[in-house]
Write a protein that binds this DNA or RNA. Structure first.
Lengths: 275, 275
DNA sequence: CGTCATATTGAAAGATGTCAACAGAGGTGG
DNA sequence: CCACCTCTGTTGACATCTTTCAATATGACG
């Protein structure tokens, strides 16, 4: 039951396959920049996308401090974006998959304030920003969609702030798993079975936890039957339970039937700080 | 030495004074949407700003879930934006002062995902978004600046993620004070002496800490001579020290000379989680 | 079969939250 | 003008979650 199974209409190119570069033929165009454009406008967008660029695992698409020229749409694969302190601590600001747009944070300053690193061999479409700005003036629906895309990024980050600021480790991890599932679902894959493309360290870096905490928490989720886990292959066995967990309703929650073990030794504290 | 003193060219209207509504005469236009526009274009922007709106202390400019129609530029006063959990926990996503633009997070979904509440009697300029979209098509520099503004918001939030995810309470608070100072400096006020417009609870809500932690930390900063503090009036006495603190270089840091008290009982731990 | 990176697990320490009592400011009404 | 009340902020003692430090798997790769 673990393997990640596409359950719907997507048609992901194998890496290395000779793929068509036109947006109209990309299986993720509904999620991406051309969303809502007609054939003609999509063609104009095609014309400014200079090339398809491959990024190998652990390579960076752009580095922190690098000057900004283009946005990138993930075509295939996964990326993380990370910001590094002057002291070397790393905050993962997001994980990105097919259809996501990368680089927007750099528009303000002309410099990338975080690095984008491929979590596996990946491909992106490069969109020169200057040309996009011109095109957007001629294609109002594209501009509107671009605005929505940036705004959604703002909103996404606010929800990260919410869990970094307010939630316990357990809740954060449950929410993380659920949200990964939801994103895969939006791409036609199973919301409950998928492969974690990132290391435990990256998960920790994203959730504001140490790698040990992540590891322990995952082990606990597994023992309690919320999830099954084999290396990076994960299945969410009890979505409702995870949801309850993410809301902080720890404690009694039905035992899950598996393992039978040490449930009940969690205090049923109510809320982490709050009035 | 505590009172907040304008040290430069700003000319804030007193609340209640009959103020000119044109952007060209607003002392914050350099920080706001009309940044970089010529007289003519600024006039066109003026025409779509429907009215100046007053928001009394504790009133909300918009509520969570409310449908989105307009952006708002803070003209006078201060706001907080806050997101609330299904469980009632509150995450303050930002504090906003004159020249800041509010409401961008709602562009994506058409619904406000956070509430904006006035921290004191305030005034905003309302900018109907549909009309802004039209205008932006006719005034490319305005569009570009609008994009930069949204992008800066993305970047700002990423830096909040960085400190919520990676930094200790002490560092967060130091950074918060410094950043407030920097923002006042950008508006022509003293970077070192200002009034905290928000409650301790709001500070905690922003920094992901309890009110008690904030209170204790402020007391410690004061005792160690980093700051002086009288109710909500704060002076940053040792900017370099606070900066070092925000970097996590706790420990020996020169005693500040004041109070003389219990310095040295902080462990000189190095980094909060990191490799 | 070593070596390295990644992940798991245990024990102990420590930072921050929780609970509780209290102080001071400001407002209200007698 | 004073008593009273509420709201905000301060401080203390204690609980506990999460980190830190350390040892030990596990798998990939030569």
């Amino acid at each position: 039951m673990h393997p990640t199974i596409p359950i719907a209409v997507v048609n992901p190119q194998r890496p290395g396959a000779r793929a068509e570069v036109r947006c109209g033929l990309c299986s993720f165009n509904k999620l991406c920049l051309p969303q809502g454009l007609d054939e003609h406008d999509m063609g104009r967008l095609d014309q400014i996308i200079v090339r398809r660029r491959r990024v190998l695992r652990d390579e960076s698409l752009y580095a922190m401090g690098q000057s900004f020229h283009s946005l990138y749409a993930v075509r295939l694969g996964h990326f993380k974006t990370a910001q590094v302190n002057r002291r070397g601590e790393q905050q993962i600001t997001g994980f990105h998959m097919a259809g996501d747009l990368l680089g927007m944070e750099a528009i303000g300053s002309g410099q990338h304030s975080c690095a984008a690193v491929a979590l596996e061999d990946s491909e992106v479409c490069e969109i020169p920003f200057a040309r996009l700005q011109e095109l957007v003036l001629q294609v109002p629906p594209l501009m509107q969609h671009f605005h929505r895309t940036m705004a959604r990024e703002i909103q996404r980050e606010q929800s990260v702030m919410l869990f970094l600021g307010n939630m316990r480790a357990e809740q954060r991890l449950a929410l993380f798993l659920l949200s990964m599932g939801a994103r895969y679902a939006a791409r036609g894959y199973s919301p409950a079975s998928f492969q974690l493309r990132m290391s435990r360290e990256d998960i920790g870096g994203y959730l504001g936890l140490t790698i040990e905490s992540v590891s322990r928490l995952l082990a606990r989720f597994r023992k309690q039957g919320w999830i099954s886990l084999d290396k990076r292959e994960v299945s969410l066995l009890d979505l409702a339970g995870l949801e309850r967990l993410s809301l902080g309703v720890a404690g009694e929650a039905e035992d899950g039937g598996v393992g039978g073990g040490e449930a009940g030794n969690q205090p049923d504290y109510a809320a982490p700080r709050a009035a």
